[in-house]
Simulated scan of single mutants.
Amino acid sequence: MVRLNVIYTRTGDAGETGLGDGSRLPKTDPRVVAMGDVDETNCTIGLARLATRGASDATLASIEATLARIQNDLFDLGADLSLPRQPDEAAGKALRIAPSQVEALERAIDDLNARLEPLRSFVLPAGSAAAAALHQ
Score class of each variant (00 low, 15 high):
47 L>D: 13
129 A>F: 03
124 L>F: 04
28 T>Q: 14
36 G>S: 02
114 A>D: 15
54 G>M: 07
47 L>F: 12
73 D>S: 06
80 D>G: 06
128 S>K: 04
33 V>M: 09
27 K>H: 06
108 A>H: 11
110 D>F: 01
134 L>S: 07
90 A>F: 03
86 Q>V: 13
119 L>F: 13
94 A>E: 15
112 L>E: 11
109 I>Q: 07
131 A>Q: 10
73 D>H: 06
98 A>I: 06
9 T>W: 06
53 R>A: 13
95 L>Y: 00
57 D>L: 02
73 D>A: 05
126 A>P: 00
28 T>I: 12
101 Q>E: 15
71 Q>A: 00
84 P>L: 03
72 N>D: 15
102 V>D: 08
101 Q>I: 09
46 G>P: 13
112 L>S: 01
84 P>M: 04
38 V>P: 00
129 A>K: 02
124 L>C: 00
120 R>K: 13
18 G>K: 11
90 A>E: 15
58 A>R: 05
66 T>V: 15
102 V>R: 10
70 I>C: 04
95 L>E: 11
2 V>T: 08
1 M>L: 07
78 G>E: 01
109 I>N: 02
50 L>A: 14
105 L>K: 01
112 L>D: 00
131 A>G: 11
11 T>K: 10
108 A>E: 15
87 P>Y: 01
45 I>N: 04
87 P>T: 04
27 K>F: 05
21 D>K: 05
52 T>V: 04
106 E>P: 04
84 P>R: 02
